[in-house]
Amino acid sequence: MAKELDSDRAVKNSDDDLFGFVGIAERLAPLVVEASKGDGMVIGLEGRWGSGKTSLLNFLRAELTSAQERRR
């Protein structure tokens, strides 16, 4: 059965990632970690309603949490 899109709800489970945001989060997380070692940083995420901004942030948060746990 094909998965249905529900643009009103952010996804957290990588199995529900229909747009490849998990891969983006995996590549972005090490860059965020490295950039955070400096004096400070600001990251902006911009897009239309329903474009997946919150889903991408959910995957990035999960990846950063996993990276932090691996360093312990």
Results as ranks from 00 to 15, higher is better:
K37Y: 02
V32Y: 08
L18W: 01
A35L: 13
E34M: 10
A62V: 07
Q68W: 05
A10E: 13
F21A: 02
K3Q: 12
G44Y: 02
R61T: 08
G44F: 01
F21Q: 13
F19C: 15
D39V: 15
A35T: 12
W49C: 01
D39H: 09
G38N: 11
K3E: 15
A10N: 01
S55K: 00
R71C: 08
F59C: 09
G47Y: 05
G44H: 02
K53C: 04
E4N: 12
S14F: 04
F19L: 15
S7D: 03
G52W: 03
G20D: 01
Q68N: 06
E46Q: 09
D8L: 07
S66C: 07
N58S: 11
R70N: 10
N58F: 00
A62T: 15
A67K: 11
T54W: 02
A35P: 08
A2K: 10
L5R: 09
F59A: 08
D15H: 11
K12E: 14
L64K: 10
G52S: 04
A29D: 07
N58R: 03
N13V: 03
D6F: 06
D16P: 03
E46F: 03
F19M: 14
D39S: 15
R70C: 04
L56M: 11
P30M: 01
A35Y: 08
L18H: 01
S14Q: 05
G50T: 12
K53H: 11
G40R: 10
G52Q: 06
G40W: 07
R61G: 04
S36A: 14
E63R: 06
I43K: 06
E26W: 00
S7H: 06
V42T: 14
L31P: 01
S14I: 09
V11Y: 00
